[in-house]
């Protein structure tokens, strides 16, 4: 098996819009968890709400790109407010429970064929989802038509375009997060993460701050969701499960939750490793070194490794691979 090829194509994976989408979600989660201490176990649902909002606006209302994106963001804001109102006054586990439950229910709702528009079409497309909503986005593509070779991967002009936009959004969100977390507003968030009663006793409206953080991070996840589905050109309910959410968590905790560059570094490391492990395992299966395991089972083993990584990171390196031990997020 050729390790160099495996490594190279893993690297090719890195620069895709798919990775950018996860990094966007992880930056949003950094605002939730890293800076405010909110345990959001349903980040996938925020991404999905944004993605469906965008797709439905583009397909059903024939909205132009900007309006579709704004509609997706509006859906994420509403979703955040609905989840935040009952939970943000209570102990941290309630947000965790409600977000994980809401993510599950969102999948049911998206899969269900019960919610239809007046002409009888299922608004979310049911189990098959929606597709072909990227027209308004790709029509703006300034990249000349053709095949491009990037790290051994052959990309079309449309793929290049969505990759560029995806990573530009990452840069914008990272800068926004950088400036906000260094402002007095960010100081209040960090204070809430450490001890919300203390911040309350200093006259700050803790509930409002938490809600703002939930909305802001949720909007970033919604942008991530839009990038994800514009890249894949379909939005299907099965994608937005717990695996999606906890891949985001692993990305965030790998890089370090309390830094702005953490999610980006985490995303780079995670997806390189993820693709590389897949290639290596597939190679081992091909030469019958993995017993009776099949290729689909390799994907499952990879998820087991994600789960293990999440556990081990939280236990042994809560500050992330690059974080400073002194700044470890959890100290009781």
């Amino acid at each position: 098996m050729d390790l160099i090829v495996a490594l190279q194509s893993s690297f090719g994976e890195l620069i895709t819009a798919g990775t950018a989408a996860f990094v966007l979600c992880a930056i949003g989660l950094a605002i939730h968890f890293g800076f405010t201490g909110l345990l959001n176990f349903g980040q996938a649902a925020f991404a999905a709400v944004g993605a469906y909002g965008y797709a439905i606006a583009a397909l059903d209302f024939k909205a132009p790109l900007v309006l579709s994106v704004l509609f997706g963001l509006l859906c994420a804001v509403i979703f955040a407010v609905l989840l935040g109102i009952p939970t943000l006054r209570l102990r941290a586990d309630y947000l965790a429970i409600v977000t994980i439950a809401a993510a599950q229910v969102f999948k049911f709702v998206a899969t269900s064929s019960a919610i239809t528009d007046p002409s009888g079409n299922v608004i979310t497309g049911g189990a098959e989802g929606l597709s072909e909503f990227g027209g308004t986005f790709y029509s703006l593509n300034p990249v000349p038509a053709g095949e491009y070779q990037v790290f051994g991967n052959s990309l079309t002009q449309d793929q290049i375009w969505v990759d560029i936009v995806g990573w530009l959004l990452v840069v914008v969100c990272a800068l926004l997060t950088y400036f906000l977390t260094r402002s007095p507003w960010g100081r209040a968030l960090k204070g809430i993460r450490e001890d919300e009663d203390a911040v309350r006793s200093l006259g700050k409206n803790v509930y409002l701050y938490k809600m703002q953080a939930l909305i802001l991070g949720g909007c970033m996840a919604a942008l991530g969701g839009m990038v994800f589905v514009i890249n894949s050109q379909t939005v299907q309910p099965t994608v937005w499960g717990t695996n999606f959410t906890f891949t985001i968590w692993t990305v965030l905790l790998l890089g370090g939750a309390t830094t702005v560059l953490g999610p980006i570094a985490g995303g780079v490391v995670f997806f390189t490793l993820f693709a590389f492990i897949q290639k290596v395992l597939e190679g081992l299966v091909a030469i019958h070194w993995m017993g009776s395991l099949t290729i689909p089972q390799v994907g499952q083993i990879r998820l087991i490794l994600v789960g293990l990584a999440l556990m081990l990171l939280v236990i042994f390196r809560p500050q992330g691979l690059f974080g400073n031990k002194k700044e470890t997020l959890f100290n009781g």
């Binding site: 100081r187 204070g191 993460r193 703002q212």
Partner: peptide, 25 residues
């Protein structure tokens, strides 16, 4: 607030900081 500096702890106690609102921040 353990992971804030002593100075940031103090600053958080102050009133009327417009930068504590999200948009003005």
């Amino acid at each position: 607030l353990s992971l804030l500096t002593v100075l940031d702890n103090m600053r958080l106690g102050a009133k009327h900081q417009p930068g504590e609102s999200l948009l003005r921040a």
